[in-house]
Design a protein around this nucleic acid. Structure first.
Lengths: 230, 230, 230, 230
DNA sequence: TATGAATGAGCATTCATTCAT
DNA sequence: TATGAATGAATGCTCATTCAT
């Protein structure tokens, strides 16, 4: 029954394609409007599916968003891992990480933003919390494993790059985890700077700037040698 | 009509006191629940005013939030200016800025978060409004002058501290504006890191870490002297 | 401030009148359509309030229904208690109970029906159960105290009438609770007979019929004396 | 075309078997969840047919329910007829009727419930339909012949048992139809008593109780003889 | 024939804002 | 001035039914 199988396959393909299509469309709407502003009607209209159909593919609005975020993160993880594996100097790798992350943040704007910034919302989305009317007692709520794993993997990759630098003698013998934290903060913070008026640096310029400071800091070398640096 | 004037004055006083009271209460609620989760009913209940009265004092929910943010920022501005004026070494001043901003972010959580993170929302709040269904083309939308001024003032203060450092020969002769950008990014990014698992550093530890990296970077001094640093 | 007080009072009056009005309207709609078929839009349209206004007065659709039922039952309870207190023969009292309950059932049709007949629904309405998708494990769920109290009071009243009959020697020395059960069953069952084709007896005729059977059964007196009856 | 005929026959057999299977499954679900709570998805899942297939066999959800009820009633009818035909005393027959009906009600709970209790629903199911928003004027709406016939048959059977009793001199010379009405009411009403707290009588005890009252009423024999009974 | 996919029409509930007093 | 009352416009989600293959 090759015929039957093929048909079945094609159908399954269509299903997964539809899912993918919905996710992509939803992503772009979420990115444009943010989570709350995006309605199921929006997604329905833009996908040209009926709302009911959306609910065939996903259990809820937050499910859709949840998956959008997951995909987004997985994308970042695998790209960063690629960067780490290339045969390049540590410095080049870091530069590439910055370049990639800056464009990534820029293009995923509202998506990443929500993940980094709206804990209350995230908790709701992640179904950690349901009770709408009860005050949440802070951040004790844990984030789903899937997400944590990816975030850890991303940090791990960056940490490894830094460790390489330390081992090669390029970097000081710092705690690589701390260094990773600082590095990520720099990137994240630089991106979420939309408020300040457009200094509008290109990605390239931004990368240079950030890398520069991350590498050599702001002290003069004289000062620097005086002992703070071992 | 002295009598009239007095009454009028008393009146005005009361009005401005009420406004202040509402703003303070609202701030605490916004801080607790975030913007969208906070309803006018919440504010009404907690201020013990009627919703209609709130609308006597403010034109809309976003107006309230708008002013809350403004106040919040003004607070930061004046504190940072105080720090700058003290008779301390540049390094100490930077350390104090970090300390202050970290606690500030921590305590104003939801408030600052929205400002940095929900552009769509901010646009709505700021009344830079827009037909709802048309895609926004990014940051071209300008932020109200009030805000811009404060943000500029804050940046200016930090920039000045850095300039001091440059003039005293402690810092390299970098572009102080860029340095300020990097410094702020570091702070902001470090704060919005709630996602990653709790490295739970104290404010003091965090300050040390950030300052360390900002000052001397990650390169070894040897590498450092080799020429990258002039 | 007599004036103020009066106004306040008038307003409170209006509030409670509105509540009452909504309840009455809702009752008639529930009675016509049943619980599920009745939508908040129906109630809104027929009361000429907006849906939002309904939610000012009641927390939910089920709350409205809940109160409708409660009122309905209270009405019955107090009327039955009046009947019991009158100076009449036991038989007359029972006849009056039948008369009243038959008209009561007839006029409250769908309301009482739901109470007696849709446990699953009632549980939902009574908020005993929330989880929509989990199978309920039967009737173990208890009914709210308010309701139980009223039902008990009603049974109690009927039981007392029967006890009077026993004490006066008119009735056999039966267990009055059992007799009450039988009596109520007879009434209830007679009413919920709408399905069978219209025997359309008047209330009066029905009362006579039911009372007759309840009083003397169907056996011939001869048979009757043979010992079954002590 | 013997071949064709056989195939056709097999086909028809399968069809009717499938119908039967669906009906049985549906009955158990209806019984568990009630009419409205039962979705076509439920039935589809439990029969392992697709929803579309269900619609090949039945025109609508209400059609399915309709037939379920019909079957249920036919079952009762034939069992009652069996009871009537047995060689037993009238009293025994009545006792058996009670026993059977009580277990029957108990096991068909939600099914019979709807039939007796949700007129609006039944009307919809029976397609006696109606413009939704117009008040229904009660019971004028007729029930489909099928149902009426069965209900009549059931009543007829009970009536006949009672007639036997009258003819044998065991029962008073009452109108057997009225007696049947009273008898059925007693049963039905006794069952739909879920509200009151669990007197939890067994079927046997219940049967004794009901029969007792139906047979000899509540008056003392003295009172009884005084003339009310001829 | 059998079915996976698609959908339209609904529905309870929420909330910022306005209005009459 | 202050406010209780009123509301329009949304919004996420459900389900019986149809259709294309």
């Amino acid at each position: 029954m090759v015929k039957k199988d093929l048909r079945r396959e094609r159908e399954l393909l269509r299903v997964s394609e539809n899912r993918k299509f919905i996710l992509e469309t939803a992503e772009s709407i979420f990115a444009r409007k943010g989570y709350r502003q995006t309605t199921m009607d929006d997604i329905a209209e833009e996908t040209q599916f009926s709302k009911a159909t959306l609910y065939r593919y996903f259990r809820s609005k937050s499910d859709i968003f949840s998956e959008v975020i997951l995909n987004t993160f997985q994308e970042a993880r695998s790209e960063l891992q690629k960067i780490q594996k290339r045969q390049n100097s540590t410095e080049t790798k870091l530069r590439e990480v910055i370049r990639y992350m800056l464009s990534y943040y820029r293009c995923k704007e509202n998506i990443t933003r929500i993940f980094f910034v709206e804990p209350t919302l995230m908790q709701k989305i992640m179904k950690i919390d349901i009770s709408d009317h009860v005050a949440l007692s802070g951040k004790e709520q844990t984030i789903p494993k899937d997400y944590v794993e990816i975030v850890i993997a991303i940090r791990q990759t960056i940490t490894e790059i830094i460790e390489e630098g330390i081992n090669s003698g390029d970097f000081r013998a710092v705690d690589p985890h701390e260094a990773c934290t600082v590095f990520s903060s720099l990137l994240r913070g630089y991106h979420f700077q939309w408020t300040t008026i457009n200094d509008d640096y290109s990605v390239e310029e931004s990368a240079k700037l950030l890398l520069d400071y991350f590498l050599i800091g702001i002290l003069t070398s004289k000062k620097c040698e005086k002992g703070e640096r071992i």
